[in-house]
Each structure stands twice: as structure tokens, then as C-alpha cells.
Computed example of a mutant assay.
Amino acid sequence: GWRAVYDFFRRWRRHGYIRELHQRLRRTERERQGRLPEPSAGIIDSQSVDGSETCPASSRGYDGGKSRDGRKRHILTDTGGLLLEVTVTPANVHDSKAAPELLEAFMAEPGRLLELVWVDSAYQGQELADAFAAHGVEVVVVKRTDGTKGFKVLARRWVVERTLGWLSRSRRLNRDHERRPDHHVQMVWWAATITLVRRMAGQRPHWPEFRPHRLAAPGPARG
């Protein structure tokens, strides 16, 4: 029943299995593309989502800019849009405050080669720059052209925005239904892994229709 499924989910969360699975698949996909397993450049962005009634007030907030009452997921991707790291905060936490923790989580593992990260204008300030410089990572702000109105594709920025769009296709991530922020993090890893596996398989999801009348009785074994 649901208890067995939840115990499975909790065990994978505790040991970081789904994150490790995605990291291995991500490195394999980059090598398949003729790139190094670890990226030297990345892109950071965030996405606020409303919280459902199961999302407690103690771990949620109101994002006035996006009119969202819930949580915010912060992601780091490579230049192809593959997820590198994710953290989750209340939606009222400013992007510049959450970015150092996001980078720290990714750079904590040995073998990281990240040297440069593209961000939007929300990721500014000396404190953020110092936190990134401590890891030898340069921050490059991609700004909109002065006077530009409406939608505009920004160099490098569109890649991470596309990844956020991919994640939003997961029904579980349209709203935050999780009681714990770390459970939301795991749901992001699951959604990213499913997307990556489909990408590597080169096929769209297909669920065969079940038609009982097509089932035939087993016949004699054939040599």
C-alpha cells in the first residue's frame, strides 16, 4: 500500500539515490554529446509555485513579484539545460540569498569544474559575488536591453527557463503538495530524471492501450 511506497521514497531520499542516478545519467549524456562529464559553465534561475493546503506555513512564503504563496525552487543547469543542482526555499526568499547555498551544494562534491555561471539581474550584490568567488566561480549577469517590453529571448537565459518549463510539466510540481522542502527537492530530481531518460531514449512517452480481447491462451512451446 501507500506505506510501502512512502518507505521506498524516504529511503531513496535519505541516501540521495535519485540525485546520484540523475548525476550519473547526466554525465553519460554529456559524454555522448562529446563533452566533458562535468561542465565548466552553468546557468541559475528560480521558479515560485503555490503551495497546497498540505504545505505548512512554517516553510512557505509569499513571492510578491510572482504573486505566489508557497515555495521557490532554485536550479543550476549546464549550458544544455541538464539539471546540476536544486534547492527549495520559501517563495519569499530572494534569489541572491539562495544562490550561494545552491552553488555550495553542487561544489561540495569533488571533481567539479564549474568556472562561470550566467544569471539574471536578481543575482547581484557583493555578498553573492564573494560567495561564488570563494569557489573560483565567476558570475555574469545577462540583462534585458533597456526599454525592451514584453517577451524577449535572452542569450543563455532561455536554456534554464526551458528546463523550468520541462519541470512544470510534472503534475506533482505544478503546485507544492509536500509537507517538507526536502521532499519537494526529491520530486524535482524525479521529474528531471524522467525527462532525461526519455531524452536519452529518443522517444516520447507511450502507454499501450490495454485490450483484454487481444490476449490469447498460451499455446504449445515453439522450438
Rank of each mutant, 00 (worst) to 15 (best):
R24H: 03
L154I: 07
L154P: 11
E104F: 04
R214V: 06
P205D: 03
L116H: 03
C55I: 02
R19P: 06
R211M: 02
L36R: 10
R32L: 15
V159I: 15
V119N: 04
E161Q: 04
R13A: 15
A134R: 12
A131P: 09
T145F: 12
F132C: 13
V153C: 12
E104Y: 07
A217T: 05
W189K: 03
G165T: 02
A134L: 10
R171K: 12
F9T: 00
T77P: 04
R156L: 09
G1A: 15
R156F: 11
P37N: 01
H135N: 04
E85V: 03
R32E: 05
G125Y: 15
P181D: 09
R171A: 12
F210E: 10
G51M: 06
V140Q: 06
I75Q: 02
L164H: 04
R157G: 14
F8S: 08
S96C: 13
G136W: 02
P181W: 11
L164A: 00
D146W: 06
T163P: 06
D7N: 14
R19H: 13
V159P: 13
L114E: 02
T77E: 02
A98Q: 01
V142D: 08
R169M: 15
R172Y: 09
I44Y: 00
D7H: 11
A133D: 14
I75F: 00
S121T: 13
T79G: 14
G147Y: 12
A4F: 12
G61V: 07
F151E: 05
G125H: 01
L76S: 02
L76A: 01
I18G: 05
W12Y: 02
E31G: 00
L114Q: 01
L36G: 15
L113M: 15
P208Q: 09
I43V: 08
V88M: 04
A134V: 05
T77M: 08
R30I: 03
A105C: 10
L103F: 10
E115R: 12
R26Y: 11
R35Y: 03
L25H: 05
R162V: 15
A191Y: 02
A4M: 10
V142A: 00
R199H: 09
L82T: 01
L83T: 04
P208A: 08
E101M: 05
L76R: 00
V188E: 03
I43M: 06
D78I: 12
R204V: 12
K72F: 07
K143D: 12
R222C: 02
H22I: 00
V160C: 01
L25F: 06
L116N: 09
Y123W: 06
M187V: 09
R180K: 13
D146F: 04
R24F: 00
S67A: 10
R112D: 00
C55V: 08
V49G: 00
E104R: 13
S170Y: 12
V160H: 11
V159G: 06
W189G: 07
A108W: 05
E109C: 08
I194C: 14
T89A: 07
I18S: 04
I75R: 07
D176K: 03
R204W: 02
H177C: 07
G150C: 06
L167D: 05
K152D: 10
E29W: 03
H213P: 13
